[in-house]
Structure formats: structure tokens, C-alpha cells
Write a protein that binds this DNA or RNA. Structure first.
Lengths: 204, 204, 204, 204
DNA sequence: CATGAATGAGGATTCATTCAT
DNA sequence: GATGAATGAATCCTCATTCAT
């Protein structure tokens, strides 16, 4: 019991420290980009020594891996919130608007793109992203298939996964746009999003 | 005449060398990513000494800038070809299929994403991409607005630009997918693309 | 107390390391010249890795800047010693004799000239040298103006600054000579110095 | 005769080309400093190809050597002109005022210092400077010793060489000043020069 | 003669990672 | 656990010099 409590305390500590690193790393990656953010930058942002980071993460790559994994939960939560939003177009526009909120809770569009590219080269990252997408798309499909009475769109199960893929294409298209044209006229963009959303939620 | 021929020869040489560098650089960037490809890599791929590259390009950055500009022409040409393609969905699927053809004629999806992210940090790249998008989207809009008799879709001019934005979102969404899930079931992906395309070419 | 001691230890370490770099750099600059001394040379002389130097100095330029500043103190001290020297001509001859003592405490004549030239091109160095000269010339003027009873020469204040300039011209002339003709007959040189010194300390 | 004429023509050509390089090099060295001026800079200034320079000079060092030699004549001429100047102080102030005349006929103060430092490291340059000084100082001595009736100062031969050394110290001191404090108050400087000159031309 | 493309070694600087304290 | 000094390989870029044309 005593031992267990001690261990637990240690584990909590570890978790806290990991979070601190992750949080700092995310904000550095967002600010400078993955390749230009140095471990020294991260250490400073996390208010710890560079050496200490290596107690919690094997190397720089492991940090990015952990960030991707952590994003999975954030994203699933966001999808759950999408369900309760009045309008899907609004919900999806959020992906354009909020993705680089100064805070550290979410990847910026640029970092998202950078990671996607990195996954092409680094198998670990590739796998992590693949898993991420798998889970997220299933969540989306489940939701689209759900009965409208409980906030779904009643899309037939067999189409739902395809519509989820449409959503993915749309959302990722939006992220690319956000990176390339952050000041695009929002109203104009929304019209485009609405058109696509109609197709996603519409009849087959 | 002689002088002209001499000058011309020198200019041809210069053009050839520039192309060699661009070609080599593109393949290195595609293979290793922009940040991980070193000038030494590029020099080796171009079969020249590192120093020589600097006779043709001011620095590493100038090389991607040139690549982006070169891509503009490739892309406009591709759009022109889209017009003659029987089916738009097929044409757009090409963006998924052909983007990292081993050769050096085209950016891979990953490099496209990387550049988009980079444009966020580097103003020169940002400007180049912005110009790229501007031109390409206008080309698309023009085409969508053209009369069906000449291979267009007769979309009202005022909607055409918005539909062009939809196409952009779709195409960039596809590029992200290509990077993250290169082995996705093509048929399944095509269904999604068709759905979106319908919206783009359909009635208002 | 403990914290204070720890901090102090770190600062001492930093000071020691800075000194080590400065010392090594000075000896490299003296031996090879500023432009031909590489950071690798300096690192080797300082028995550290090249990278470590950058923990203590922002770049190569910052090193000479620091050397110049350090020289200011050395020079002021030398001027103070001049006062107690029996004969000013002897004191000034020291500038010819001791300037490239093997050790690292002082710039060689050659490095002095090199820095003076460099100050023409690099504004930071220019400013550092300007400040150096300002302070040193004032010290000299103060001393010349001081009452002979306390080791001065009783030169009227209004002339003292001009006589200080004369001393500067003489000393810098000597440094140039040292660089160009290190083996000049000392006795012969001393005669010349004496002649000039007479003018500096003599009546108006 | 024909052969001789041809040879002569070739030699004239060679001389012209050498001069062009020397002129260009001097202006580059003055502008950028010896170490920062590249052969490419010089070639551009001389309006010839880099390769061609090597037909006339073995390497960069040989250029500086030739410049030093060429300066000897310029300097001797200047000394001859000094004789006719009404006032020696004025003549010497010229060394401060005209040394970096935009043109290429004369070394800037900075380049003079740089060369002096370089002579410390490069034996060839060292020898060239040594010879330069030898000749120049003898010219000065001769002049100081000459009868006032023919524009000299009638300084006893045995003192004249020493006074010439004084002049050298003064002139080189001025050059150092010019580099370090180009905007010094000229009137103030002249007072100092006058004081020293008095000693040089005065009675023993 | 003349060109200027080409070389490749060398320079300053950065940074992920380690390890003595 | 925590520090941060230390390493050293790797990066981008420059430039004196050569040589095919």
C-alpha cells in the first residue's frame, strides 16, 4: 500500500512532467516548425533542462509521436462536440478557425501538414498517423450513421464510412487552405464548405 | 550572329544546369524532405560539386522557390488537360495517383504539404504559394465557367470561383490523404471524390 | 547561502571558460591573424570543442570585441604604471618591446593594426575601438596635466589633451614600426622616441 | 626589328593588363579589405575573367606584393612633392587627408595597416615592406639633410636618418588615427602634427 | 589570349544527445 | 531526479584556383 502509493506518486509526477514537455514541444513546433524547433527551445519552454527531457522521451522523434497520440483524444472529443453543434458547416469551419489557437492544446494547420509529410518518411510517425486516421474516421462514420434523433444524420452504415472519408478530405483541404491562405474571406470559404457538407449529410 | 549564337549557347547551358539542379533538388526533397535534404545530397544527385549549385541559385531557399514557380506551369498544363478528360472525377483522382511519380516532374504529396507549412514561416515561400494558388484557382474558375460546348461546365461566373475553391479543398484534401494513407482503397476513394465532384459541377 | 555559493560557482566557471576562450583566441589571432584564425584553431587552443565556444560567445566577432574590451583595462593599467616609471621614453619604448609577449595578456602590434583596419569595416569593432581610444586618451591627458609632485608633467589642461594625442600618434607609430621592422636598432629608435617625448612633456 | 616591335607590343599589353588588375585589386582591397576582397571581386572590377588574372599574377598574394612595390614609386614621388610644399606640417597632414582618395592610386589607411600586419605573417610581404621602408626613409633623410637653399632642412647627416624615423613614426601614427578616428577635429590634429614637426625640423 | 564553369576544401555555426556532478 | 556543460558531426555557404573550350 505504502509502496503502491509511492509508486503512484512517482507515476503522477512522471505524467505531469511528460505533459509539460509535450505542451512545450507542441507550442514550439507550432511556432517554429518541427525541424526548426530545437530541444533547447523545448526545454526552455518547459522550464526544464534539456537533459531532463531525455528522461521522459527517448529522442525528439518520440516527442512528436506522443503529441500525435495525445491529439487523438483531443480530436475524438472535438468530434463528439460536433454532434451537438447546431450546424455541421459551422462545426467544420471550426477546423479552419481554431486550429492554431495560441494555446498548446491543438496542432496548427502548418504543423498538421508537416507531420503528415513527416509520416511519409518516418515509419513510426506514419503508423501513428495511420492509427489516428483510422480511429477518427470510424468515429465520424459512427456519428453520421447514428439516428438523427440522437444527433446523427441517419446515413446508411455502408455509406457512412465513405461520407466520413469525404469529411476527412474536406477538413484536411481546409487545413491546407488555412496554412496557405489564412486570410481568405471566411464567408466565401463557408459557402464552399456548405456545398460540400450538403453532399456529406444529404441523401444518397 | 556569332555573338548571338555564343550567348545563346551560354544561356542554354545555364538553363540546362538550372534544370539539373532543380530536378535533383526536387527528387531529394521528395525523398528526404526539404529540411533533411542537404545541399550535398542535391549536388550529388545533380552530379555536380556543391559549390556549383551556388552559381545558379543564391541559396537553398531559392531552389524551392524556383521549384514552386516551375510547378505552376506544370499545374496549369494539368488543368488544361483536365478539360479534355472525359470525367472530372478521373481527372482529379490523377492528383492522388500521379503526384509522386518517381521522376522529378512533380512534387510529391508530402513535399506539397511541407511547402505549404513552410510558407507559413518563410515569407518568400508564402508569397510564391499565394501567387501559385491565385493563378491556379482562376484557371479552374475560368474553366468551370466555360460553356459545356467547349469542354466547360457552364457554372455561372459568380459561382465558378467558389466552385474552384471547392476543387482546391478537394484536391488538397486528396494530397493530404495520399501522404497519410497512400494505400487507401482507390475505388472507395473514388466514390468519395465523385460525390464531391457532383457538387462542384452540379447545378447551383 | 547554499544557493548563492552554487550560483557563484557557476559564474566562476563561466568566467574561467570565457577567459580560456579569450586567451586562446588572442594567441590564435596573434599567430595567424584574425581572418586566418579559425574557430577550430581557437577551440583546439582552448582545448574545447568548437561548439562550446558558442555557449560563451555569440560568434567570432564577439570574441574580438571582448578582447578589445579586455585590452582597455590592460592599457589603462599600463598607463598608470607609466606614471611611476622614471622616464617616459622608457615607458613608451615598452609599447614597442612588450607588445607581443608570447603570453596572451596583450595584443601583438600586428593584431592591433589588423583590428584598427577591421574597425573601418565593422561598425561594432569601430565603436569598441572608438571607446577604447576615448578612455585611454583621457587617462593620458589627466596624467600629463597632473602636478609633477604627484608624478605628472604639469601640462596645462588645455594642452594636455593635445599632448595626449601626440602620445597616441607616437605609440601607434611605434606599433606600426614594430610590425614592419621588429628588429630595428633599439638604441636608434629610442633616440627618436626621446625627441618626440621631449615635445610632449616639454613647455608649451 | 619586327620581332622586337611585336614583343614590345606584347609587353605593353602585359603591362596594361597588370596595371588594370593592380588598380582593380587596390580599389577592392580598399573597399572590402584584403581578406574579404575575393578574386571574383577583383576580376569584376578589372572587367576581366577571374582566370585571366592568373596569367598575370601567380596568386592573390602576388597581387598584394605588386601593389606594395607600385606604392613605392607613388610614395617617393609624394616625398619629392613634400619638398616643395611650403609647410612640412601641411605636407604631412596630407597623409591623413588624402590616403583613401576614392581613386586607386593610393592605399587607404586601413589597407596600409592590414598590409603591415600581413607582413608579420607572410615573409614575402614582410620583405617587400622592409624594402619599401628602407628606401622611403633614406629619401626622407636625404631631403632633411639637404641644404635649405635647395628646399631641405640642413639637418646634419648623422641626425637626418633619425629624424626620418621620427617622420615615419608620425606618419604611421597618423595613418592609424585615420583608420580609428577618421572624423577627428583636423585643426586639433594639426596642432599635434605641428608640435612633432617642429622637433623633426628643429635644431638638434 | 581569354573565358567562366567547375572544383572541393575549408569556414562559421547549430543542435541532438550524453554524462559528470 | 535534475542540471547544463560538453561534444562533434553535420549544415550551408564561400572562394582561390584550375582547365576545357
Amino acid at each position: 500500500m505504502n509502496a503502491e502509493a509511492t509508486l503512484s506518486k512517482a507515476e503522477i509526477r512522471k505524467q505531469t512532467q511528460c505533459d509539460r514537455v509535450l505542451c512545450a514541444a507542441l507550442s514550439c513546433f507550432v511556432k517554429h516548425g518541427f525541424h526548426n524547433a530545437s530541444m533547447a527551445n523545448i526545454a526552455e519552454a518547459a522550464q526544464m533542462s534539456p537533459g531532463l527531457i531525455y528522461r521522459y522521451f527517448e529522442n525528439k522523434n518520440a516527442i512528436i509521436l506522443a503529441i500525435i497520440e495525445a491529439q487523438l483524444e483531443v480530436t475524438r472529443q472535438r468530434i463528439r462536440e460536433l454532434r451537438t453543434a447546431g450546424d455541421l458547416a459551422d462545426g467544420i469551419m471550426e477546423y479552419f478557425d481554431t486550429q492554431d489557437c495560441g494555446g498548446a492544446e491543438s496542432m496548427s494547420a502548418a504543423l498538421f501538414l508537416e507531420m503528415s509529410a513527416e509520416g511519409t518518411r518516418d515509419p513510426d510517425i506514419g503508423r501513428a498517423l495511420s492509427h489516428f486516421d483510422q480511429v477518427v474516421r470510424q468515429d465520424m462514420a459512427d456519428w453520421l450513421a447514428r439516428d438523427p434523433a440522437v444527433g446523427g444524420y441517419g446515413v446508411p452504415v455502408e455509406t457512412a464510412r465513405n461520407r466520413a472519408l469525404c469529411m476527412t478530405l474536406l477538413i484536411e483541404g481546409l487545413k491546407a487552405r488555412k496554412a496557405r491562405e489564412p486570410d481568405i474571406d471566411r464567408a466565401f470559404l463557408r459557402v464552399a464548405v456548405e456545398a460540400m457538407v450538403e453532399k456529406i449529410t444529404g441523401p444518397c
